[in-house]
C-alpha cells in the first residue's frame, strides 16, 4: 500500500495523528474546510452533536445508508409475503368452502409490518456497520481531553496515515486554522 510507505516516511510509526481543539462548531467546520483544501484526506472531526456541513467540509461522500435501508425494507416485505404464500398456498392449503388459497388482501398487514421491520433493522445495523461500531478501543480514547468531545468541545484529528501528514507541519497547520489546544495522539 503506497499510503503506508509514505506514512513511514512522514511520521513515527507509533503516532495515530495530531488532534486540535476548536472553540466552536463554526470554527471546526472552517478548520475542516481548510484542511481539505490543504490536501488532507485522512482526517475526522469530533463534536458533541451533529454539526451540519461538517462531514461535507471533510470531504465525506454521500452515505449509502439510505440504499441499505431501502434494500432492507424490500427484503422484509418480499420475505413476509412469500412466507405467507408458502404457508397458506403451498405447505398447508386449507379448502374453506372452495374459496381461493391465494387471498392476497389478507396478506397485506403482515407484509407491511415485515417491510417496516426489515427497514428498521437495516437502518440500525447498517448505520453501526458503516460506522465500524461497536469498536471497544480507539487511540483517541487515550487522550485525556478527548472525553470533552461528548460534552461541549470540538476536535479535528489529522491522521498519520494521510500521505500529506507531517508531525510538525500538521501541528503548525492546526495552529493556523485556529486550534486552541493541540496534542499528539499515540496509536
Amino acid at each position: 500500500m503506497p499510503d503506508h510507505l509514505l506514512l513511514e516516511a512522514a511520521a513515527p510509526p507509533d503516532v495515530y495523528g495530531v488532534l486540535g481543539e476548536f472553540p466552536s462548531a463554526d470554527q471546526l467546520v472552517e478548520a475542516a474546510r481548510l484542511a481539505h483544501e490543504a490536501g488532507y484526506r485522512r482526517m475526522d472531526a469530533y463534536s458533541p452533536f451533529p454539526v451540519h456541513g461538517l462531514a461535507e467540509a471533510l470531504g465525506a461522500r454521500a452515505t449509502r445508508l439510505s440504499f441499505v435501508v431501502l434494500l432492507g425494507g424490500i427484503t422484509g416485505g418480499v420475505l413476509g409475503y412469500l412466507l405467507q404464500y408458502y404457508c397458506v398456498v403451498v405447505s398447508y392449503p386449507l379448502n374453506i368452502g372452495g374459496r381461493p388459497y391465494h387471498t392476497w388482501p389478507s396478506f397485506i398487514p403482515i407484509t407491511f409490518e415485515m417491510t417496516i421491520l426489515g427497514a428498521a433493522l437495516a437502518a440500525v445495523f447498517g448505520m453501526l456497520a458503516l460506522n465500524g461500531l461497536p469498536r471497544p478501543h480507539h487511540p483517541l480514547f487515550a487522550v485525556p481531553e478527548f472525553n470533552q468531545a461528548s460534552h461541549s468541545r470540538f476536535f479535528l484529528c489529522l491522521e498519520a496515515r494521510d500521505p500529506h501528514f507531517d508531525l510538525d507541519r500538521s501541528q503548525e497547520f492546526l495552529t493556523h486554522a485556529g486550534a486552541t489546544y493541540i496534542t499528539i495522539v499515540e496509536s
Binding site: 469530533y46 458533541p48 452533536f49 451533529p50 461538517l54 462531514a55 452515505t63 435501508v69 483517541l140
Partner: peptide
C-alpha cells in the same frame, strides 16, 4: 465506542 465523529454523525442522522 461512539466518539462523535462527523462521518458517524452523518450516518446516525440519516438512520
Amino acid at each position: 465506542g461512539w466518539r462523535g465523529s462527523a462521518r458517524h454523525w452523518k450516518r446516525f442522522e440519516v438512520a
